[in-house]
Structure formats: structure tokens, C-alpha cells
Amino acid sequence: MDNTLITILLSAGILLVIAVLMALILGWANIAFHVPTDPKVAAVNEILPGANCGGCGFVGCSEYAEAVANGKAAATLCGPGGQDAANRIAETLGLDLGQTWPFKAVVHCSAKREQRLKQTPYFGEQSCAAANLVPGIQGCVYGCLGYGDCQDVCEYGAIDMVDGLAIIDVDKCTGCRACEKACPRGIITMIPFKTEEVLVVTCSNKDKGVLVKDVCTVGCIGCSACTKPADGLIEMVNDLPVVNYDKDSSGIDLHKSIEKCPRESLMFIGLHKDKKKAQGEPERIEANFATTVDQTEWRG
């Protein structure tokens, strides 16, 4: 036979033998090393969004799926999956969920940059975690610092920094709790949105009213005026009103509480802002690059 032909035959033959050998070994290993997995875990894993955000308190979606399937965790912990995922998990595992609500993040501070007292000029690292270490960075030791650590960790673009204050878009918020962990002052918490609009206390200052007035123009002074019309729904704890979200709020006109507040420490935060905006949305203004480019801040 010709040398070239033999080389081709030899190459093809050897590759074929290697391939068949490897296939046999892998096929045998697949059977010999088979690990029986619970089909329930796989089914739950299929339902979860796979974002591995860690909001449920487990390392990743697969760990959570295992815990849920074994009955070690509740089916409602997945923030990004929300109500839909919880329902489907409950259906798959035959659980009874009861009534559940979506949890969303809210900021318990409403003071914009010019509404709160600044004490020390700060030129350090532009992050809340670093700024929070500086004594006297801000008059209010409880409120929002405005460097946007929560905005940086939000993977869903739900947080905007407006005039030095974090504003959360609850429609975009999935309840993954990343911002709650990132905030060094702990003023972001998760609350259940049982209705489209939820009453939120937007101040975290636990000091007496006189001290609060020194450092902030909108903070809660602890006058407890909001508690009377709320019929037991709001209680004063450490000079701050606390809304009891477990109680049924139907039949109580919470607008009265907001009207009674002499400051701006209570407000409604609502879902589906987009729908409301669509009714009277202003026209889009085109950007004028002649004015914007020169003002670009370069932080190189």
C-alpha cells in the first residue's frame, strides 16, 4: 500500500480507538459513579431564576432548592422569583403557602442633601462604608449618606441617587436584600407590600425632637401626632413611629396620619408608578450636548 494511505488509515484508526475507549470509560463511569438525586430538588431548581443572588440566605439557587425540597426552608424566600416562583414551588411540592406578599426595599430617610446638616468636609473614598467611619461626616448620625453603595450593589437598576438620597423604584425592586446588606447605617429594610401603596416611616433618627431639628429639616421629631388617627397601627418606639405591617390596615385612613405629621417623615410608597406616570407624562426633552459635555466630571 501507499505510505500516504497508510498514514491516513492509521490516524483515523487511532483516533477512532481513542474515542471509543474514552466513550466506554465515560459510559461505565456514568453508571458506576451514579449519584441518585432527588427529582424534587431538580424540579425546584428549574423554577428558581438562577440569579444566585443569595437573598434567601443560602449560597446559591441549588442550595436553596435542596433546602426547600427537604422542608428545611420556606418556599417564599426567593426575592427575584417573587410570588410566581413561590406559587410554582408550592404546587410542585404540594405545599400550602397561605397568603404571601412581595417584600420590597424601602429607605427610612427622606432628607435630600440640602435638607440635612453637613459638619465635616469629606474628600475621602466616595462610598458610604468609608464615609460612615468618619465622625462628624454629617449632623444626623442615622440618615442616608448619599454615596450610593446601595445603588452600586443593586443588580436590577432599581436605586437612583437623587440629590444625595437613595430613591428605590419598587417596581424594579426584586427584594434580593443586596442593598439592605450594603447600607452601613442600616436604614434600608424590607417591608411587605400588601396593598399598592404602603405607609413608610422615612426617618431613622432616634434622638429627641430638639436634636433632630438641629441636624435635619424633615426628620421625625417624635411628636407622636401620627399615632392617633392610625388606630394602633403606628406605635412610638425610641421616639420614632413604627408601622406594624402585620396588622390589617383596611378601614384606617392613613392619609390623616400623613397630614398630621409636622415634618415630612411619613409617606406613601407605591407600586406601579409607571401606570400613573403614563397618564400625565411630560414630553421627552432632547439632550443638548453643547452644554452637557463641558460639565462632565472626570474622576480619573
Binding site: 500500500m1 505510505n3 497508510i6 498514514t7 488509515l9 492509521l10 490516524s11 487511532i14
Partner: peptide
């Protein structure tokens, strides 16, 4: 396979 033995096989 009866190839030319003077040529070195190289795969």
C-alpha cells in the same frame, strides 16, 4: 500494514 520501512512513522 506493509508500509515502506525506511520512512519514519510520525503521527
Amino acid at each position: 500494514m506493509g508500509a515502506d520501512p525506511t520512512t519514519v512513522v510520525d503521527l
